[in-house]
Design a protein around this nucleic acid. Sequence first.
DNA 1: AATGAATGAGGGTTCATTCAT
DNA 2: AATGAATGAACCCTCATTCAT
Lengths: 173, 173, 173, 173
Amino acid sequence: MTHRKEAISLAALKLFSTEGFASTSTKKIAEYAGVSEALIFRHYGNKKGLLNSLVHKIEERFISSISLIVAEKDPKKVIGKTLTEAFESMQKEPEYWNLNYQLKKELKGDLFWKMDLIFTILLKEFKNLYVDEPEYEARFLVLFLEGMGNELQNNTLKNSTELLSFVMKKYDL
Amino acid sequence: MTHRKEAISLAALKLFSTEGFASTSTKKIAEYAGVSEALIFRHYGNKKGLLNSLVHKIEERFISSISLIVAEKDPKKVIGKTLTEAFESMQKEPEYWNLNYQLKKELKGDLFWKMDLIFTILLKEFKNLYVDEPEYEARFLVLFLEGMGNELQNNTLKNSTELLSFVMKKYDL
Amino acid sequence: MTHRKEAISLAALKLFSTEGFASTSTKKIAEYAGVSEALIFRHYGNKKGLLNSLVHKIEERFISSISLIVAEKDPKKVIGKTLTEAFESMQKEPEYWNLNYQLKKELKGDLFWKMDLIFTILLKEFKNLYVDEPEYEARFLVLFLEGMGNELQNNTLKNSTELLSFVMKKYDL
Amino acid sequence: MTHRKEAISLAALKLFSTEGFASTSTKKIAEYAGVSEALIFRHYGNKKGLLNSLVHKIEERFISSISLIVAEKDPKKVIGKTLTEAFESMQKEPEYWNLNYQLKKELKGDLFWKMDLIFTILLKEFKNLYVDEPEYEARFLVLFLEGMGNELQNNTLKNSTELLSFVMKKYDL
DNA sequence: AATGAATGAGGGTTCATTCAT
DNA sequence: AATGAATGAACCCTCATTCAT
């Protein structure tokens, strides 16, 4: 990938995630990336193609981060690590999560939704722990995570690290 | 409010909440409402004005629904009713919640965010219950609700009613 | 049809017929017509729609002119009048014929081709005259007319009126 | 001429003649020829240069075919051969004729127009035959040929061979 | 109150062409 | 000789908005 193609990708990630896909013009992307507008179309075909390439990157990145977690054996450790991994990812790479949320609205289901994978992992481990209603326990935690992701995007969540610690303690993880 | 002005409002609510503000053209709204495009501007000044009128409606409606809750005395009942009220509202009037979520991204803070009010209520009652860390308890529940709202918009949440019952039981509400 | 809508139609007729459909930009049409470019799309949907409206006009105009001819009884008079009518139409309304030729190339058969109608008329009358090979006689004359139409577009045909007289005399019309 | 340069020339001939000069992009030509777009500009300077090279080829080819005809002595044979040569050329190399017609519209007179040469030949021979009005006789036949060329491009002319025979017989050639 | 006509600004995309390699 | 990268200008078209009626 050439220097400029990457610049376009980065600009698009930034702008799509903050302004939304529809509200981001290709001209704005080009200016932000410091390239000509036409270059976007040379490299990605069209605006949707640029988006798709970002989505692919997001998915690959996330899947590889998850694969590290499931190597663990102890159910509690897996659950704990899933929460912390997701949380840290949300903090370190907010653009990717932002984009993921944005696209969920705009693409309506055409998108790989990270939370589905997290749910699957949690469900399995809650079953291993023989809790009463593993589906609801898992879903409950996932929805909390999803809400947290929501808030982290807007920087409206104070003491998020402490909040996570609180949850970890609550679940004895 | 005349018949046509209301038709515009309804069309805009529907379209803004499903397609987003930026992606909904005034032409589309006019067609959906069965009126001329110019009428939108006569009644609401501009597109943003139409949006603002919707936002006002949403806020009024939500505040009045909350005021019923806080009339309760028993902290646990207040918490429980807050959860069920929010949940039922999400199910009965998905457009309003959808719009609220959409606008949170697009307006970035210019908007009254329902969850803030819910947090305030829950925080007060958790304090009344003398739980250990009321801020985090309240925040935790709010984020769960927020995640649930997220999912309900896309109809991707199965057994949501049972899930809520599970949470109510978990908190002994 | 409003004043400006008509202006667009006239400008398009002029430009499409002289420059070709593909080579005529909507901006050029708008400038030539003295209106905003957007108005073209309001009135005709898109560039192709504008073309289609011209084609319809052309067809209607031609069919009505032909209907006068076939009212004649004497075969020779019909043939003669067909030739002169076509010729005069080519001279008086060169834009329409130009466009017809242009479109024949660009639309490839999606177009009503005037010469087909002329052929039908001539064929019928040559049969009435009991000439040896009416199909070829009719086709021969039609191709001559077609060639003449070709040349008249570019003003490269000198003494066209005398040429027609010559042909009329040759066929004893 | 290298292999690739020729491929470009062939692709351009094909595409210009079927789609027209303006409607054929250099990208399309490059793809059709299986070369890079930049190569077109290396070999032909610009799009117009590519066209000019084609036009030159066409003219050379046609002039050499005509020179065989005028070697004949008998006027009637010359006329007959001119018709058949033109006809066969139209059938065997439709692309060249197509292009010639296309360019006549698009270049407006900047182009060598084959029919002018044919007219000159026919005129001379009709004079040799002492017919009454040699100019009109020659023009008449040329316009027929021109119309036939028109139709042959779109494959809309049935029994063209028989039609030509009919004309030959009609003129006792 | 309500509309059709009209527009300037901007949308995504394709164009012919140049440049570095 | 040949190509991929890169671009400014132009393409068709949609946008929110104004105006006359």
